Amino acid sequence: MNQNTSPLLQVRGLHVAYGKTAALHGIDLEVGKGEIVALIGANGAGKSTTLRAISGLLKPTAGSITWEDKPITGWSADRVVAQGIAHCPEERHIWPAMTVKENLMLGGFLCRTHAEVEERIGMAFHRFPRLRERQKQLAGTLSGGEQQMLAIARALMSEPRLLLLDEPSLGLSPKMADEVFTVVQEINAHGVTVMIVEQNVYNALSVASRAYVVETGRISASDSAANLLQDPDVLNAYLGA
């Protein structure tokens, strides 16, 4: 991140607990405008919990979250979305009994008019031609890759400035995972900042500019993605080198 500019998102000393079980123990991170920043680490390390706290799905027990120099710690999820942060959750969570277009319409709940919803759906179909072809199809009948495309398109219906992506390649074939990561890069190239949680460390570091390594609810390392791809500890722990 450019050190001369304020970060778009800043997280300081973030603690989150599930009941009496602590999940995050003082997470510090920041995301600059226009970046793709990855959170990498093992299952249960706290990566998804971090995204949920940022998007308002979980309430932190301590620490701060600042968005564009504005404190948003503990805000409700709908207020966070209205500020320009969209969360595409793990396992997609589309509405399977609704059509592709109906899923997108629900993603446009912030739009003020039906015409605005239709305009954004048109933009989604332009970006994801496969969804246009299947717009009347029930979302639950789509392939895994198509469902992931729909989940991303639905998140983009709010026209976010920051997109939080949780495990976008989960359960996908390598070919389809490559397609998803190509879409992530295209979205970023069109001005959307991206924060991505991904267990496929190689894919995450291939598209990210910077990354944080999360271990047992703490940040254990942070560096450029290129440097982390050359780090022997990261290679041994996550890439099987």
Rank of each mutant, 00 (worst) to 15 (best):
Gln3Met: 05
Thr5Asn: 12
Ser6Cys: 02
Pro7Val: 11
Leu8Glu: 14
Arg12Met: 14
His15Val: 03
His15Ile: 02
Thr21Phe: 10
Ala23Ile: 06
Gly26Asp: 10
Gly26Trp: 12
Glu35Ser: 12
Gly44Arg: 09
Ala45Phe: 08
Lys47Thr: 08
Lys47Leu: 10
Lys47Gly: 11
Lys47His: 10
Thr49Met: 11
Arg52Met: 14
Gly56Ala: 11
Gly56Thr: 11
Gly63Arg: 07
Ser64Arg: 13
Thr66Glu: 15
Pro71Leu: 01
Pro71Ser: 08
Ile72Val: 14
Trp75His: 06
Ala77Gly: 03
Asp78Tyr: 06
Arg79Lys: 15
Arg79Ala: 09
Gly84Cys: 07
His87Thr: 09
Pro89Asp: 12
Lys101Trp: 05
Leu110Ala: 03
Cys111Gly: 08
Arg112Tyr: 04
His114Asp: 01
His114Arg: 15
His114Tyr: 00
Ala115Val: 01
Glu118Val: 12
Arg127Phe: 00
Phe128Gly: 02
Arg130Ser: 13
Leu131Asn: 02
Arg132Pro: 00
Gln135Phe: 00
Gln137Lys: 10
Leu138Ile: 08
Gly140Ile: 08
Gly140Phe: 09
Thr141Phe: 13
Leu142Gln: 03
Met149Lys: 07
Leu150Gln: 04
Ala151His: 06
Arg154Pro: 07
Ala155Ile: 08
Ser158Val: 06
Glu159Gly: 01
Arg161Ala: 08
Arg161Glu: 13
Leu165Gln: 02
Leu165Phe: 02
Asp166Pro: 07
Pro168Ile: 10
Pro168Gly: 06
Ser169Phe: 09
Ser169Ile: 13
Gly171Leu: 04
Gly171Gln: 03
Leu172Phe: 08
Lys175Pro: 03
Ala177Met: 07
Asp178Ala: 15
Asp178Gly: 14
Asp178Glu: 13
Glu179Cys: 08
Glu179Ala: 13
Thr182Gln: 15
Val184Lys: 12
Val184Thr: 13
His190Leu: 06
Val192Phe: 01
Val192Asp: 00
Val192Thr: 15
Ile196Gly: 04
Ile196Asp: 02
Val197Gln: 04
Asn203Leu: 15
Asn203Lys: 15
Ala204Gly: 09
Ser206His: 11
Val207Asn: 02
Tyr212Leu: 11
Val213Asn: 01
Val213Cys: 00
Thr216Arg: 14
Arg218Asn: 07
Ile219Thr: 03
Ser220Trp: 02
Ala226Met: 10
Leu228Asp: 05
Asp231Gly: 09
Leu235Asp: 00
Asn236Val: 13
Ala237Leu: 00
Tyr238Leu: 12
Ala241Cys: 08
